[in-house]
Nucleic acid binder design. Structure first.
Lengths: 126, 126
DNA sequence: GTGATATTCAACCAAATGGTTGACGATCTA
DNA sequence: TAGATCGTCAACCATTTGGTTGAATATCAC
């Protein structure tokens, strides 16, 4: 059970993986489409996705030759609970989160995976 | 700024470091006392503490030959905010957190750093 | 000053991580 | 069937990580 926290936090410690999760917040995506905005190879993205799937943060489902990636936000709950007791943080601050999206998805050294003026947060289909 | 999330999540990805943070939740501690319950060397603990300090999760203050370690829960806020938008998680579930403490502080393969029947959560003095 | 205590530093090592490239299996399309 | 597309796998490489031990530094106690 502590292994799960290990893998969740480790998965979140990489900016590419966090960017991928943010992309999947908007919609389910094929591996190739996930990879498209990044400078690194498709194989590298594929491995990031495997790691995210191992951590339970995404689910992958192969239909035909397309491997669909879908966010599993529930997997974050335990890690979230763990952190929560360290400070009595304010409930959801969506402004702050959107600032993160800006910073993580559009940094100068990174691939600008999506533009965030669409503002479709919460659009993950069950 | 995205570097900060990297280092926070990476710091939290190690069970020894999470156990240390949980210990510091109860009280400020000297490096030697932090290290006492663990099987690994003092030098290793010292490096874990440096890493936690670099991430901003603890502050260290040397008084005499004692290097006091103090939790800095505010450093977790950004990471917390980042996670929060992925699910509309319930507000503070202290029961769940205490189950984590049990699991992380008393696993069979780990050093049993503290016993948690004291139940002094929130007792970090400034 | 001498010695014990508290802590960090440096050198070293094994394993994990994150990237690459090229080959491969599967699936769609012509 | 042939060829393009989707995605993973395997081998390789450099860097980071987490541990070790022994030496070094700084402070406290005598």
């Amino acid at each position: 059970m502590t292994d799960q926290l290990d893998s969740i936090f480790a998965a979140l410690a990489d900016p590419t993986r966090r960017a991928i999760l943010a992309m999947l917040l908007e919609d389910d995506m094929a591996v190739t489409d996930v990879a498209a905005p990044f400078k690194i190879s498709l194989a590298a993205i594929s491995r990031h996705l495997s790691l995210l799937a191992d951590a339970g943060l995404i689910a992958q489902e192969k239909r035909g030759r397309i491997n669909w990636c879908k966010l599993e936000p529930d997997a974050m709950r335990d890690a979230f609970t763990w952190m929560q007791a360290f400070g009595h943080y304010a409930p959801l601050d969506l402004d702050a989160f959107e600032r993160f999206l800006e910073a993580e998805l559009n940094p100068s050294d990174s691939p600008d995976p999506v533009h965030s003026d669409e503002n479709t947060l919460g659009g993950q289909g069950g």
